[in-house]
Design a protein around this nucleic acid. Structure first.
Ligand code: FES
Ligand code: FES
Lengths: 154, 154
DNA sequence: TGAATCCAGACCAATGAGGTCGGACATATG
DNA sequence: CATATGTCCGACCTCATTGGTCTGGATTCA
């Protein structure tokens, strides 16, 4: 119903891997791809994108590779997904430039934009550090669900 | 980044329309399609799907059409989207039957499942009644965002 | 130098979404 | 009852997007 692209998934996996191995100064794309068994060239392209945005620092040449440019705690899932899949959002017809021609009639767009913001907020509250240390992520999600169900019956 | 399909959008629009006109016993798909200027046959298919799941009651023949089978307040956005776009979810490789072959390695799936549940909770807290009466939906979304940002810095 | 790595872009294949068609079915009316 | 009309319903097609590959060039270090 609401699918996250595979590239974003790969990107998150790679970031988690880097966060788990802070001792090694730089890890090559091929290494990560091999450990997870995902296509190397595809992961490479994803990492390039992340480097371009500034989430990763790249180092070419031998023993080169990638390294986090910020603390794992300060990189949110929202940033990653946004960097890889672009600024797409819910509401289907948010094509950026040419907006849907039946926009004046569409009465559903505005409320859905609110939902969109809520989802973005959830993603912003998850960092790659949370991916490594499961406990915090799990408990936070539980809290969120509680809060949501609370507000739901008001 | 996280696109809702156009069909689901149409479905929500149609449900909202039905909720706004409770006096008419049944509205034809063509009528709704004309008012919003969307392809009639496509909307028809969406409505068929909703009828099959039990959210709508269909009535063939002349003066036929569709009608809500439950109170607008009890129909959640989650139900609608699930009915139209199927049980797809985040995490990209949740193909239902044959799971991704690199599932044992994928360390990111579990945390994302939590995020998924949070999003589902948000969608479950929105009903088609909320789409009609904007106020409640807006205020609820604002509350949610406040709560999220609160828990985020813990 | 040369091996290893990053980088950029074009290119192809498969999946799925958006959209269309003709037939089945139920109701109305003479 | 017969027929005409409007509706539902399932199968089909087309095209955009995604996932994935290939090529070539630039950068760094042994
Ligand atoms: S359908 Fe285009 S604005 Fe909602
Ligand atoms: S990539 Fe397949 S389970 Fe996560």
């Amino acid at each position: 119903m609401l699918r996250l692209t595979k590239k974003a998934d790969y990107g998150l996996m790679a970031l988690k891997y880097l966060a788990e191995h802070p001792e090694t100064p730089s890890v090559s794309a091929k290494d990560i791809a091999d450990t997870y068994g995902i296509p190397a060239q595809l992961l490479a392209k994803v990492l390039q994108r992340l480097a371009k945005v500034g989430l990763l620092k790249s180092h070419a040449g031998m023993n080169g590779g990638y390294a986090l440019s910020k603390a794992a705690r300060t990189i949110t899932a929202f940033e990653v997904i946004h960097a890889i899949d672009g600024p797409l959002f819910i509401t289907s017809c948010t094509k950026g430039s040419k907006s849907c021609d039946l926009e004046p009639n569409c009465t559903v767009k505005e409320p859905l934009a609110r939902v969109n913001e809520s989802i973005a907020a959830v993603l912003k509250s998850i960092t790659v550090y949370d991916l490594v240390d499961h406990e915090t992520a799990v408990s936070r999600a539980a809290q969120l669900q509680q809060l949501v169900s609370l507000t739901a019956r008001m």
